[in-house]
């Protein structure tokens, strides 16, 4: 049997919001360690990697490893039926063809059950090589979301340049150009507002704005986002999910034609 309970269903609601732009279906791998998902978008430009550790759940039981193929829009619809204060329990039997979502109100006077059919997916699993990145930037996630939104008005692509001075985002298009520079913040008490650059070598890479604007749908999950970059390899855009895990987005760069 598989059973995973989260007192804060809002976490799972936010996770679905963070993946539903990119994925239409995905296999959730459940094991003793927790729930993992790895899936590419349809165009194979980006990859989403989600990890929810079993010890982050309020109750977790997984008697045998399960691979559950799920429709992301359907799962998203179901999670929209949960109130943010509800507790959520995911439940499936061994060799399941359905998964059940149970939502309980805080005083347990309302219990809702939604059963969703699982789908058979033959998804390709990719090996992500261990990489030491040339630049790792931590910055407020809302600021990153805002920059992605603002710069995407100017062009389809955004260049991210990281140096010891800080991080610079730029876009160019028919209307003109846009540049936003963020300096590394001094030691600050408010870590959520900090911009921290760890740089071994400067990096300059160009990425599709459309994908970045999908990644920033994860903003409600975490006050900070971590961007890891090296020349000519995919960007890693990572959000911590409370004490339970993380979501990482990998985005293939655009290169000169």
């Amino acid at each position: 049997m598989f059973e995973a309970r989260l007192v804060q269903s809002v976490i799972l609601k936010k996770v679905l919001e963070a993946i539903k732009d990119l994925l239409t279906e995905a296999t959730f791998e459940c094991s003793d360690c927790g729930i993992q998902l790895q899936a590419m978008d349809n165009a194979h430009v980006s990859l989403v990697s989600l990890n929810l550790r079993s010890d982050g759940f309020d109750k977790y039981r997984c008697d045998r490893n399960l691979s559950m193929g799920m429709s992301v829009p359907c799962m998203s619809k179901i999670l929209r039926c949960a109130s943010s204060e509800d507790t959520v329990t995911l439940r499936a039997w061994d060799n399941p063809d359905t998964i059940v979502f149970v939502f309980e109100s805080p005083n347990r006077d309302k219990i809702s059950e939604y059963e969703m059919k699982l789908i058979n997916l033959d998804q390709e699993h990719l090996g992500i090589p261990e990489t030491l990145y040339s630049c790792v930037v931590k910055m407020p996630s809302q600021e990153f979301a805002r920059i992605c939104r603002d710069l995407s008005q100017f062009g389809d692509a955004m260049t991210i340049a990281c140096s010891k001075e800080g991080i610079k985002f730029s876009a160019a298009g028919d209307y003109g150009t846009a540049n936003v520079k963020l300096a590394q913040t001094a030691e600050t008490e408010n870590q959520e507002e900090a911009v921290v650059v760890e740089m071994k070598e400067p990096v300059k890479l160009t990425f599709s704005c459309r994908y970045l604007n999908s990644f920033v749908k994860a903003t409600p999950l975490c006050a900070q986002v971590q961007l890891s970059m090296s020349a000519e390899v995919p960007l890693v855009c990572e959000y911590q999910i409370g004490e339970i895990g993380h979501i990482r987005y990998y985005l293939a760069p655009k290169i000169d034609d």
Partner: peptide
């Protein structure tokens, strides 16, 4: 002009 690369160029099937 830039062209979009695929994530599969960088990460191989495992």
């Amino acid at each position: 002009n830039t062209k979009q690369t695929s994530i599969m160029t960088f990460f191989k099937k495992s």
